[in-house]
Amino acid sequence: MRHVPEGFERAYRVQQARFPGVDPAVEPGWQPVHTVYVPADRFSARTVAEWGDQASSLVKAHLAGPGELAEVFGVPAPLAADVHDRVGRKLAAEPVEDLRVDFEDGYGVRPGAEEDGHVEQAADAVAAMHAAGTLPRRWGPRVKSFADGDPARSVRTLDGFLAGVVARVGELPEGFTVTFPKVLMEAYLGQFAGVLAELEARFGVRLRFEMQVEAPQTLPFLRGDLNESLGGRLAAAHFGVFDYTAAIGLPPHEQRLDHPACDHARHVVQTAFAGTGVELSDGSLAASPASDRTADVHGLWRRHAELVRHSLRHGFHQGWDMHPSHLVSRFATVYACHLARYDSYRERVRAWEERRPAEGGVMDEPATIRTLAAALRRADAALALPE
Score class of each variant (00 low, 15 high):
Val213Ile: 12
Asp364Pro: 14
Gln217His: 10
Asp105Asn: 04
Thr177Ala: 14
Leu158Cys: 09
Leu207Phe: 01
Gly52Arg: 07
Ala351Gln: 03
Gly170Arg: 07
Val4Thr: 14
Arg350Pro: 07
Thr179Trp: 11
Ala17His: 07
Ala125Arg: 04
Trp301Arg: 00
Gly106Val: 04
Ala147Thr: 09
Tyr12Ser: 15
Met363Val: 15
Ala40Met: 08
Glu71Arg: 15
Arg350Ser: 13
Arg142Trp: 03
Val205Lys: 05
Val241Cys: 08
Arg206Leu: 13
Ala45His: 13
Asp98Trp: 12
Ala152Tyr: 11
Gly7Tyr: 03
Ala384Ser: 11
Val178Ala: 06
Leu372Ala: 09
Gln270Ala: 12
Leu135Thr: 05
Pro173Asp: 05
Asp150Lys: 14
Val48Met: 05
Leu234Val: 09
Gly106Pro: 00
Val268Arg: 06
Leu376Arg: 02
Gly283Met: 05
Ala125Leu: 09
Arg223His: 11
Gly21Asp: 02
Ala287Cys: 10
Val268Asp: 00
His130Ala: 15
Arg233Met: 08
His317Gln: 11
His130Gly: 09
Arg206Pro: 02
Thr218Phe: 01
Leu385Asp: 02
Asp105His: 05
Ser325Lys: 02
Ala374Glu: 11
Thr179Glu: 12
Phe239Trp: 06
Leu69Ala: 14
Arg202Ala: 11
Ala187Val: 12
Ala193Ile: 02
Ala379Met: 02
Leu63Val: 10
Ala64Arg: 12
Phe239Met: 05
Cys337Arg: 15
Arg370Val: 11
Arg313Lys: 13
Ala246Arg: 11
Ala80Phe: 04
Pro324Cys: 05
Ala64Asn: 09
Tyr335Ile: 06
Val109Gln: 12
Ala373Ser: 13
Gly194Gln: 01
Arg330Asp: 07
Phe103Pro: 03
Gln16Ala: 15
Arg350Leu: 14
Ala246Ile: 04
Glu186Leu: 01
Ser329Met: 01
Gly319Ile: 07
Ser281Asn: 06
Val178Gln: 00
Glu27His: 12
Leu312Val: 10
Gly231Cys: 02
His323Phe: 02
Val183Thr: 06
Val278Cys: 01
Val165Cys: 03
Thr333Ala: 00
Glu254His: 11
Ala332Ile: 04
Arg2Cys: 10
Glu94Gln: 13
Val195Gln: 12
Pro251Phe: 10
Thr47Arg: 08
Glu306Thr: 14
Ala193Val: 01
Gly224Tyr: 00
Arg309Gly: 07
Gly299Tyr: 00
Asp243Asn: 08
Arg110Gly: 08
Tyr188Lys: 06
Phe209Trp: 00
Gln270Tyr: 11
Ser154Tyr: 03
Ala11Met: 10
Gly108Ser: 08
Phe8Trp: 13
Ala305Thr: 04
Pro181Asp: 01
Ala92Lys: 13
Arg341Lys: 15
Ala127Ser: 06
Ala125Asp: 07
Arg309Ala: 12
Ala201Ser: 12
Ala17Leu: 11
Gly360Asn: 09
Asp150Glu: 15
Tyr335Glu: 06
Val75Glu: 06
Phe192Asn: 04
Glu279Cys: 13
Ala92Trp: 08
